[in-house]
Amino acid sequence: MPTSTLASSTSIAPANPWALVPPLGNLDAYISAVNRLPMLTAEEEQQYARRLKEHNDLDAAGRLVMSHLRLVVSISRQYLGYGLPHGDLIQEGNVGLMKAVKRFDPDQGVRLVSYAMHWIKAEIHEYILKNWRMVKVATTKAQRKLFFNLRSMKQGFKADAGAEGLSPRDTLSEHEIDSVAAQLNVKREDVIEMETRMAGGDVLLDPSPGDDGEQAFGPIAYLADASHEPTSMIESRQRDLLASDGIATALATLDDRSRRIVEERWLKVNDDGSGGMTLHELAAVYGVSAERIRQIEAAAMKKMKKALVEYA
């Protein structure tokens, strides 16, 4: 395009290029609006890219972005199978497009569309990995490659099985695992692990009560380790102290007869595992009634309880 024509088209354009897309709440209206935006020729793209690079011209940056919004819409459609909102995918793709425009070098001899595709896909990939599940399913380069290829490859295996009249499998066979690992140049163990991650779902550790008001059972019930919870550790230490030093201190407050009755009744165990002496056996030892032994025992227990409270 001649320079004069480009200058003319620039002069009649609105000061804010983003005004070409009205703030519509309807996604279909947005897509329709961006598809009506004019595409830039190679000469126009070079002109705007140089203005941005040399003069930091934001108007030129806006025109480069606006002319490629339809590209973001097209790429985002490829990722609708992950169950995330199309509008969010477009939004993240637009972020990648703006990053590409900022870094685009017109002297490299490539069109912006080729350069921007990488940035748009990278931003959408990052969004999917962060939001597809609560727990991130892929962190390493190999895992990312598997995540974005395993779904499509499994669909291909199912289609091949259907064409051969076989029943499609939900899981990969040993041969299919080896095939995926060879094609993507990853370990077969990584394929198995990623398939397991993708087949699983998010589980709430502590589910909220159901409609009937009853507390739902969740992993928190059997995953929690109460033995290392600070409050439980303090309580356990206090119980151990009361069971050793505390009991010894409380017994020291009793007279000889009361202490022996308590020890024989509650603190001694016979070789056969049975308990200590009965009230009647102690009554025979001291020459009193079993009721009197019970009264002495009750008074001793009350005194020991008071001593334990003071010790604690």
Rank of each mutant, 00 (worst) to 15 (best):
L242G: 03
V73Y: 01
L89M: 06
V309H: 10
H86G: 06
G287T: 07
K303M: 06
L146R: 01
D190Y: 04
A7E: 13
V186L: 03
R188W: 03
A290E: 09
I177M: 06
A29I: 11
M153W: 01
S173F: 04
R70S: 14
T139C: 07
D212H: 02
P23K: 05
D57R: 03
S244T: 15
V191L: 02
S236Y: 08
K121S: 08
A61Q: 05
G156A: 06
M304C: 04
A300C: 05
P17T: 07
A7I: 12
S74L: 08
P23C: 07
T140E: 03
E164N: 14
M301I: 14
S244V: 12
D271Y: 10
A42L: 10
V191W: 02
L27T: 14
H68W: 01
T139P: 00
A250P: 06
D160K: 14
D202M: 07
R77N: 09
P17M: 02
T196M: 12
D240M: 11
A122K: 10
A299N: 13
D255V: 08
H125R: 11
N94H: 04
V101K: 01
Q183S: 14
I120L: 03
N16D: 15
P85V: 05
S258N: 08
P230C: 03
G200K: 05
D170T: 14
A284C: 06
G246S: 04
G200D: 07
G165E: 03
L241E: 13
N185A: 14
D212S: 09
L204E: 15
H118A: 13
L282F: 03
N94Y: 03
N26Y: 05
L69W: 00
D160Q: 14
E54N: 13
D256A: 15
E214W: 06
H86F: 12
H68N: 15
K130E: 15
H175N: 13
E92M: 12
T139Q: 10
R144M: 11
I247A: 04
E176L: 06
D59R: 15
A7N: 12
V285C: 07
A142S: 15
A283F: 03
K303A: 11
D206C: 10
L84A: 04
S289A: 11
G93A: 01
T5W: 03
E195C: 09
A248F: 06
G275H: 08
E263T: 15
S11R: 13
A49I: 07
R239S: 08
T249H: 15
A283R: 02
V110P: 00
K136M: 13
L146V: 10
D57V: 09
S9N: 13
L71H: 04
N185E: 14
G273Y: 00
V309N: 11
Y48K: 01
A49G: 02
Q155F: 09
M39P: 00
K53T: 11
A283E: 01
L184I: 09
